[in-house]
Design a protein around this nucleic acid. Structure first.
Lengths: 233, 233
DNA sequence: TCCTTTCTGGTCACTTTGACCATAATCATC
DNA sequence: GATGATTATGGTCAAAGTGACCAGAAAGGA
């Protein structure tokens, strides 16, 4: 999709930070740009916002075009407006956080050109590791996407403790174990939690007012079977 | 500033929610529109973002043009992108929270056309009261400014407890009493606080790591003199 | 039958929070 | 100058929340 931009006009794109938790790690979807500008760089998926659609509608449209997933969670992250951020012209970027449970993402991902990277925002600069030897720095990313990614990961970390955004990573919010939820929290925050304290905190916060309820089912895996819960989002 | 918009182009404005605390109440600045569209409606100040400036730079430019204040706090709030939000054409709104201490705002306000309104987001619909008998509802506002205002007040309330944004309302962050700070919190949250508990919480949170320090000065007013503090922002 | 793994429940000390009470230090008023 | 109102400051006390542990339960695997 090569597009010539007029220099006396303003444009806006919707750019998506598609996040998931897989193998106990927070992952981010990037694809390699095949056209200029930033040819060969890794980039967040994005598209130009049409004149007849809201930014969020554009985000959903892109999501459906790229990987037809249902039930994704989409939340506006921040709008990046630096003058020189796109060499083609003046392009604002309305960035979105998109959360898709790994199970649903995995299928859609097969035929796509996306690759999963694990973002690390704790060091001096952003690092992205695909787990197979490929490690990117901010310089390997198109536009100001490095800054967007840092903003997104930090925002997610900041919100997970006082909103229900963590539940959006669950394969099935109607049947999940507290262990699965803990895995999400650990992946997002990047540090281990005590399972006993974790369960106490979550149950205190969500079961008290009935948003979280235990079902009569259980999940059997390696260890002791886990009770399954249901959350009202 | 009447402007004809092309129908095949996209535009973006920076719209400002200028907030202050005055008389123990949270106030918001609105002005009445004298030109179409929404002639006669009350509106947030806003301008079109130029091709050569970032949205935040546009916000600062507008601020300086309207009321030359120094040392305001500016933070991006949200980007509103509804298709029908501006009858002139396709206009995105990058909304900003702007906080100006009342003392500095008051002077600049004298010659302007702005009016202070106290926003109330707790009822079924937004209400804005200027304290002199004028009460606005969302329908009296231009564009989707009612939605912007609700978003802004809620965001401010949500952030005041776990960020230092409340200190931005202080006349002088280098010399303020805890009573003044408490007034800010009460105005923003809309409910009274226990002064003893408030001081303990603030001192615990900010004095522990040295961001908040007591000065050797004090402020004398009606009651017992108050110690003055300094915050590192 | 062990051993490992995971889930679940509990204790204990420490911190935080909300509701009070008490006192201190000033001003306004008589 | 005495008195009362007002605001600031310091403290207690119980309840709730948090972090570090320990212990047992219930499964699968060797």
């Amino acid at each position: 999709m090569h597009r010539e931009l007029r220099q006396d006009e303003l444009y806006a794109t919707a750019d998506l930070m598609i996040l998931t938790v897989c193998g106990g790690r927070l992952k981010l979807l990037l694809s390699r740009r095949v056209n200029p500008p930033c040819e060969g760089c890794w980039a967040l998926p994005g598209l130009f916002i049409g004149l007849e659609e809201s930014a969020e509608a554009a985000a959903w449209r892109l999501l459906q075009e790229m990987l037809p997933v249902r039930d994704a969670y989409v939340e506006q992250l921040y709008t990046f407006t630096g003058v020189g951020r796109d060499p083609r012209g003046r392009v604002l970027s309305v960035a979105y956080l998109v959360i898709v449970p790994w199970g649903r993402l995995q299928e859609a991902l097969a035929g796509s050109s996306f690759r999963c990277f694990e973002p690390d925002v704790d060091g001096p600069g952003l690092r992205l590791d695909d787990g197979e030897g490929l490690v990117l720095g901010a310089g390997d990313l198109a536009f100001d996407h490095g800054r967007i990614i840092e903003t997104g990961v930090r925002r997610l970390r900041g919100k997970i403790d006082y909103t229900d955004i963590g539940f959006r990573f669950l394969e099935d919010p109607q049947a999940f174990s507290l262990g699965e939820l803990q895995t999400v929290f650990e992946a997002v925050l990047g540090e281990a939690a005590d399972s006993s304290n974790f369960r106490r905190t979550i149950l205190n916060r969500y079961a008290r007012d009935g948003r979280l309820e235990q079902t009569d089912q259980e999940k059997r895996a390696r260890g002791r079977p886990a009770a399954l819960y249901r959350i009202r989002l």
